Simulated scan of single mutants.
Amino acid sequence: MTATAPITQDVLTIRRTPPQEGKTNLIGLTRSQLAEALRAIGTPERQVKMRLGQVWQWLYHWGVRDFAAMTNLAKDYRALLEDHFTIDLPQVVSRQASADGTRKYLLRIAGGHEVETVYIPEENRGTLCVSSQVGCTLTCSFCHTGTQKLVRNLTAAEIVGQLMVARDDLGEWPVQGAPKNETRLVSNLVLMGMGEPLYNFENVRDAMQVVMDNEGLTLSRRRITLSTSGVVPEIARTAQEIGCLLAVSFHATTDAVRDKLVPINKRWNIAALLDALREYPRLSNSERITFEYVMLKGVNDSDADARRLVKLIAGIPAKINLIPFNEWPGAPYVRSDWARIEAFADIIHKAGYASPIRTPRGEDIMAACGQLKSETERARKSRAQIAAEVAGGAGG
């Protein structure tokens, strides 16, 4: 898509049948959970492993949504599955396409709540940014999602379902009988959408077990990045139970500034966070941690900030992603000037750290970093209201 391509928005006609009362949705169940569900409906123990493999492949390799299409299962067993289970994904409410090729999906989940998911195509990969909560509890003052109150955690099914919906839209499921195609349009997944993943740890962990399974969706842990604002007690657990790459919403080099930008810092300050991060590469066998740093004019973008950042992360295998602030209606901050961002990056680079400046993507459809917010909760706050909350140190 060229830079001059128009913005498009499609209201899709995809409709998911609501889960029938008493039936279990198979999407999002881990292998052990699915095996137990098959046992519970009377699958003979000697058949459980085989049936598990068959159903898993139909769901996650072929993307089948109809038990009747699972043709290597006997008809009576398919009927048994139909009687007890459903295959349900989030409902696509709308799909927007940016001039730069980014796609944003507004998805409706159980209870009528809505979340946003973003697909970002790049030259050698495609990244899907998924949400883990409806809204967010952290109230980070530079983030649009943070102006929406937390409604609830997403289930593992709703997290996995975001990837499956994107694969539907991209036509990425293999076709039986067709030559194998190794091209992956969704090659990377980032837990950087709405919500704090580590405040929904069990559902995120179970969803990632499904996504990483090598007989289904097959995204390796090296292609999954979880972004946290700094839920310190869950960081070691993430290394041990998920083992994916880790990104940290850092954004400041003093506790005084981070307390305002990322209020969770009042609970676990910079020193506590860095102590946990120093252990993560060893526990997870990861190469390095990504520090995300949004560039806010006159707030955190000075040369002194850059030099402090270098000192703070000394000894941690790291790269620093510099993120030009993506403005949204009522935002109390302004993006740093480009020359200031480059000067900041140069100090970090000369200290021996990679310091890429993230190219803003999907700004024209409010799909850029920090801009996600469900349509039903998009009531605008005035700049003065939000600034007053920031000054008052709204907690997280």
Rank of each mutant, 00 (worst) to 15 (best):
R184F: 06
R361N: 09
P174D: 02
S355A: 15
E202S: 12
L246I: 01
K149H: 12
C244K: 00
Y199H: 10
S131R: 06
E182D: 11
Y293C: 13
N214C: 14
R46G: 12
G42S: 08
D259C: 00
E234G: 05
E342P: 07
D346P: 13
E172F: 01
M194W: 00
P263V: 10
T137M: 12
F250M: 07
L38E: 08
H61F: 11
R167W: 11
S187A: 08
T117Q: 04
I109F: 09
Q54E: 10
T254Q: 00
R205A: 15
Q371E: 03
Y199S: 13
L245G: 03
D213V: 14
L38H: 07
E182N: 08
V262E: 03
N124I: 10
A40M: 06
A247S: 08
G135C: 07
I323M: 07
L12R: 07
R78W: 00
E363R: 10
F85S: 04
L81H: 01
R278T: 12
A384D: 13
S227T: 15
T71Y: 03
A166K: 04
A306E: 05
T183M: 03
T13W: 01
R16Q: 15
A79S: 12
T376S: 12
P174F: 03
N72L: 04
I348C: 14
P44A: 01
M70K: 05
N188A: 04
A236N: 13
R288A: 15
G135A: 05
V11R: 05
N200K: 02
R221G: 13
T4A: 06
I289M: 02
R31F: 10
Y333N: 11
D10P: 00
N321E: 09
A394V: 15
L73F: 03
P18T: 04
M295Q: 11
R108V: 09
A256E: 14
N285E: 14
V55G: 08
R223Q: 15
L106I: 13
R31I: 13
S98N: 10
Q176K: 13
G395S: 15
S355L: 11
G53Q: 09
G111M: 08
H84W: 02
F250K: 02
L80V: 12
E114Q: 15
L245A: 11
V262H: 01
S220L: 08
V130E: 02
L274H: 04
G195E: 02
R267I: 13
P121L: 06
R184W: 02
D76G: 09
I224L: 12
V232M: 04
G392N: 13
A391I: 12
Y293M: 11
V175L: 05
Y280H: 07
Q57D: 15
L34W: 09
T254K: 00
R358W: 11
A97R: 14
A306H: 02
A354Q: 12
G330S: 11
N25Y: 07
L198M: 12
V186F: 01
M164C: 11
V248N: 02
Q240T: 14
Q57I: 09
M194C: 11
W62R: 12
Q20S: 10
M192G: 03
E123S: 15
A79M: 00
M212G: 09
V231K: 03
H251S: 04
A384T: 14
M50K: 03
A40G: 15
K260M: 08
I313N: 07
V11A: 01
K260V: 11
V93K: 06
